[in-house]
C-alpha cells in the first residue's frame, strides 16, 4: 500500500472512536533498545470490527496494550473519541485479556461486577447488571462458581462479560480465544458475533488465527515483524450476519488466503 492511500484512509476514518498515530515503541534491554513497533498508525471507526493479525513477535499484543493505555509508547499519540489521552479510559475502553485474568477468590458474579465496584456503584445495581451480562454470555446458572470451577471457555466468557459491563465504546480483545481448542474457539467466535450484533460497539481483536479474523471482522490489519509495522489493511466485505457455513465459501477462503500470502511475503 502506498503512502497516499494510507493518508486517504486516515481522512476517511477521521471520526474514529479510537486512533493511534506515529507509534514508535522499543523495549529497553541490557543490550540497548529493541524496536518493537515502528511508525504504526491505526484507527477504528464506530461500530467496526477490526482484527489485527501477524506473525508472533510483530508487536500486535503490544499495540493492543498501547491502544488500551496500559503501555506508554516511546513516541506517538493516542486519541479516544477524538480527545488526546494517556492511560486507561475505563469509561470508554475495555480490555479482554488472553488468559481471562479473573480474580480467583471471587465468584463469576463478583468478577463481572468488579469494574462497577471500582466505580463505587451501589451493590444491588452492580449485581443486577452483572447477572444480566452473565445471562447474555450464556452463564446464567454459574454466577456463584469460582474461576477454578469453570472451563477455559467459560472463564473467557466471564472475562468478556466483565469487559462489557463497562459499556465500552471500544472493546479490545487480546487473543481471547487463543488458549481454547478449535471447536470451542469456533463456538466462541460465533457467539461473539451474536453478542456484538446486540451491542454493536467498536471491537479491536488481536489473533493469529486468520480464519477467525476473516470470519469476525469488517477489516483486518496485517502486521509484519522486525520491526513491528502495519503492512496492509484488508477490507472484509462478507455479508452479515455470518453463519458458520460462510467459512466454506470461495470468497471466505480467498480472503483468508490473501491474508496468508501477505504474512508469508513479509518473512
Amino acid at each position: 500500500m502506498t503512502i497516499p492511500q494510507l493518508n486517504a484512509e486516515r481522512t476517511r476514518t477521521d471520526e474514529a472512536v479510537i486512533r493511534v498515530t506515529g507509534i514508535q515503541h522499543s523495549y529497553r534491554t541490557a543490550r540497548g533498545p529493541v524496536p518493537a513497533l515502528e511508525n504504526v498508525d491505526l484507527s477504528a471507526g464506530p461500530k467496526r470490527f477490526v482484527s489485527i493479525v501477524g506473525p508472533s513477535g510483530c508487536g500486535k499484543s503490544t499495540l493492543l496494550m498501547i491502544l488500551a493505555g496500559l503501555v506508554t509508547p516511546t513516541a506517538g499519540e493516542r486519541y479516544v473519541a477524538g480527545a488526546k489521552v494517556t492511560g486507561p479510559q475505563p469509561d470508554q475502553v475495555a480490555v479482554a485479556f488472553q488468559d481471562a485474568c479473573l480474580l480467583p477468590w471471587r465468584s463469576a458474579l463478583d468478577n463481572v461486577a468488579f469494574p462497577l465496584e471500582l466505580r463505587k456503584d451501589p451493590r444491588a445495581e452492580r449485581e443486577a447488571r452483572a447477572r444480566e451480562l452473565l445471562e447474555k454470555v450464556g452463564l446464567a446458572g454459574y454466577a456463584d462458581r469460582y474461576p477454578r470451577e469453570l472451563s477455559g471457555g467459560m472463564r473467557q466468557r466471564v472475562a468478556v462479560a466483565r469487559a462489557l459491563i463497562q459499556r465500552p465504546a471500544v472493546l479490545l480483545m487480546d487473543e481471547p480465544f487463543g488458549a481454547l481448542d478449535e471447536q470451542t474457539r469456533m463456538d466462541m467466535g460465533e457467539e461473539l458475533l451474536r453478542l456484538w450484533d446486540e451491542i454493536h460497539n467498536t471491537v479491536i481483536f488481536v489473533t493469529h488465527n486468520l480464519a477467525e479474523a476473516v470470519y469476525l471482522s469488517d477489516e483486518v490489519i496485517v502486521m509484519a515483524a522486525r520491526p513491528g509495522r502495519v503492512v496492509e489493511r484488508v477490507l472484509i466485505d462478507l455479508p452479515r450476519p455470518r453463519p458458520v457455513e460462510i467459512t466454506e465459501t470461495e470468497k471466505f477462503l480467498h480472503l483468508r488466503n490473501r491474508l496468508w500470502r501477505l504474512i508469508r511475503s513479509q518473512e
Binding site: L70, P88, P90, V95, C101, F114, L118, R119
Partner: peptide, 21 residues
Amino acid sequence: DEGLHRSALSMGASPRQLLTK
C-alpha cells in the same frame, strides 16, 4: 500475577483499590 494487575488497571482501579482489592 501481572495479568491481574493489568486487568484491574484497565478497569480503572486506583492505586489504593489495586492494593486492597
